[in-house]
Amino acid sequence: MNVAVIKYNAGNIQSVLYALGRLGVEAKVTDDPEEIQSADRVIFPGVGEASSAMRYLKDRKLDEVIKGLYQPVLGICLGMQLMCRHSEENDTGCLGIFNVNVKKFVSTSASEKIPQIGWNTIYNLKSDLFEDLRENSYCYFVHSFYAEKSVFTIAETEYTKAYSSGLRRANFYGVQFHPEKSAAVGEKIITNFLNIAG
């Protein structure tokens, strides 16, 4: 299977490659539109800041490339947030694949630190991405901004409030947590993504 990981100015791309490698999949890191368009699966990873990431994508016309993809696409963390309509992080207009706004966590107690760092549960699981996973499976999160709940929500998590930890529209999937760092649960989610009928 031909898996493309979109190369841009964001962190954690290496971690995604290593996770795929542990599953025996050798992915190609690329910002070449043709390579991305011809891949069987596209992963859009990212840890970083929204406005500089969007600027980078637009400068290379990768924003249009991503929006025009037909094959299964998985956005991870910042990647998922960039697939939404707008992010409060530096008031950034995003790709708009999911008609959802990304907001900053507002702490409701001293124990709710921002960013959220650590393992939290995902529940109300829908879609083939979570096939064979139990409700309230644990995944690893690191983030300060969250996607609101919407009709596109396929997984929820609670931190300061309930929000979307998974989104799906047509062939586009996004997860807020890091499946590449979420032990066996994460490996199952990546495997499920690779097995989605393209």
Binding site: Q14, S15, Y18, R22, E180, K181, S182, A183, G186, E187
Partner: peptide, 29 residues
């Protein structure tokens, strides 16, 4: 990175951005 599927931190003797870039390139979180 090739074996472990949970987050990990690396420390010891880090003094520069280059040191960290090198470690992250090899898969440290």
């Amino acid at each position: 990175s090739g074996e472990i599927n949970i987050p990990f931190t690396v420390g010891g003797g880090i003094t520069s951005v280059d040191d960290v870039y090198n470690l992250l390139q090899h898969g440290a979180d």
